[in-house]
Simulated assay, not measured.
Amino acid sequence: MSKSAVVKARVEPELKKQAEAVFRKIGLNTTQAITLFYTQVELCNGLPFDVRIPNEETLKAFEESDRGEGLVKCEDLEDMFKKLEL
């Protein structure tokens, strides 16, 4: 199939730069990444990820963790499982 359709979008320059750096790390160029996204939209019949607005409890947890509050620090995986009582 011939690729002839053009997609134009305006994005923040820093976002573009950072996203393209990620694409390069995984071996994609921007066109391939956009094609992959469009393919997933088609296959999922919607966005290929959840889009949610955080509720008040989640926003509060984000703010607390940003301030370093309420974090549980673990030495290693075994320590984490112990603290999680698993």
Rank of each mutant, 00 (worst) to 15 (best):
R24I: 06
P54F: 09
K8G: 07
P48Y: 04
A9N: 11
V51A: 06
F37V: 13
G70I: 04
K82F: 06
E14Q: 09
G46R: 03
Q18K: 00
A19I: 11
K82V: 13
V51Y: 07
F81P: 01
L71M: 15
K82Q: 11
T35V: 07
E20D: 15
G27Q: 05
V51P: 01
F62I: 08
Q18F: 15
L43N: 01
L84N: 07
F62V: 07
E64C: 05
A9G: 07
M80N: 08
R52V: 03
N45Q: 11
D50I: 01
Q32P: 02
E78C: 03
T58V: 10
K83C: 06
I26L: 08
T31W: 02
K60L: 14
R24Q: 14
G70R: 05
L36E: 02
V6F: 00
D50V: 02
F37W: 09
E56V: 13
L15Q: 11
L84M: 15
G46T: 04
T58A: 10
L71N: 15
V11Y: 15
N55F: 01
L47E: 09
E78H: 10
E42S: 00
G46A: 11
F62Y: 14
P13I: 03
L84F: 12
P48N: 05
I53A: 12
K3I: 10
M80I: 09
E57T: 14
D79N: 12
N55Q: 13
F81H: 08
V6R: 07
T58R: 07
F37S: 14
S2Y: 10
E12G: 05
L47F: 13
M1N: 10
A5T: 06
C44F: 04
I34Y: 00
A21M: 15
S4M: 08
E69Q: 12
T35M: 03
L59I: 07
S65P: 04
A61E: 03
K73A: 13
E56Q: 15
A5Q: 08
I53G: 09
P13A: 06
K83Y: 01
V41W: 06
K3F: 08
G27P: 00
K82L: 13
R67C: 12
T35I: 06
